[in-house]
């Protein structure tokens, strides 16, 4: 398992794709928003948590199709499926690798990009915390979507269509938690719900992803 994780991480770093591209995309989204809504810093600081969450979510989406695509093309996915390791574990490791290469950098970059959007100082802690708790769910749900579309030639667009509605609860609770903390409201419910979704998704969704992958490898 650890060997597989290391292999995936190495591949991601060597290819350079996941790391840099996701972060660059996140930055571009954050830069474009003020052009769209105007330079009013009061307004920007108000929408900052939502924009940062949305940017992280889209950046995460961007790299999903790579989770299985390369392994599918060179046939190593078939090898992995016949390996002694259960497919559920493989799927979980893939999701973890995706989170380490995409989700974690986004979480670490978020406070830096938040400066651009005038996020109030009270918001930094909750924002990073909500992203830290929420992005693993994004990776796991995304892995499910990637497993669904792995055999398709034009899977990218379909992948977004399938995955984005599944992201709704995470996005709502994540952004809500950051927003409520900034406004001084009680954010505990959102925090617990967000953590609950992430835990449930990590525990249950790999079974669905593995089932889907088995169908696709048939």
């Amino acid at each position: 398992m650890i060997a597989l994780l290391m292999r995936d991480l190495k591949l991601a770093i060597r290819a350079g794709g996941g790391f840099g591209l996701g972060l660059a995309f996140f930055l571009i989204v954050v830069v474009l928003v003020p052009f769209g809504v105007g330079p009013n810093s009061g307004l920007l600081s108000k929408i900052a948590p939502g924009v940062l969450w949305l940017g992280a979510l889209l950046a995460c989406l961007l790299s999903l199709d790579r989770i299985f695509a390369l392994d599918w093309e060179d046939g190593s996915l078939d090898l992995l499926a016949t390996a002694p390791l259960p497919l559920e574990a493989i799927v979980s490791v893939k999701a973890l690798a995706h989170w380490l290469t995409t989700g974690l950098p986004l979480v670490l970059a978020a406070p830096v990009f938040a400066i651009l959007l005038n996020l109030p100082t009270a918001g930094y802690g909750p924002l990073v915390l909500s992203l830290l708790i929420g992005t693993p769910a994004l990776s796991v749900i995304g892995t499910f979507g990637a497993a669904l579309t792995v055999g398709l030639k034009r899977g990218g667009l379909l992948l977004s269509l399938l995955v984005l509605p599944l992201y709704v609860p995470t996005l709502i609770f994540g952004a809500e938690m950051a927003r409520r903390s900034i406004e001084g409201l009680n954010a505990q419910t959102s925090l617990l719900m967000l953590a609950g979704i992430t835990c449930a998704v990590i525990a249950l969704l790999p079974f669905a992803s593995a089932a889907v992958l088995r169908v696709n490898l048939r």
Binding site: L148, V168, P169, I172, F173, T189, V212
Partner: peptide
């Protein structure tokens, strides 16, 4: 096979979204 699994997972998430949106 794939769509029926999507339907199952989607149902759970649709319900979840319903409550999330309510909140």
């Amino acid at each position: 096979d794939l769509t029926s699994i999507l339907c199952l997972v989607g149902s759970v998430f649709a319900l979840l979204s319903r409550y999330a949106v309510n909140f």
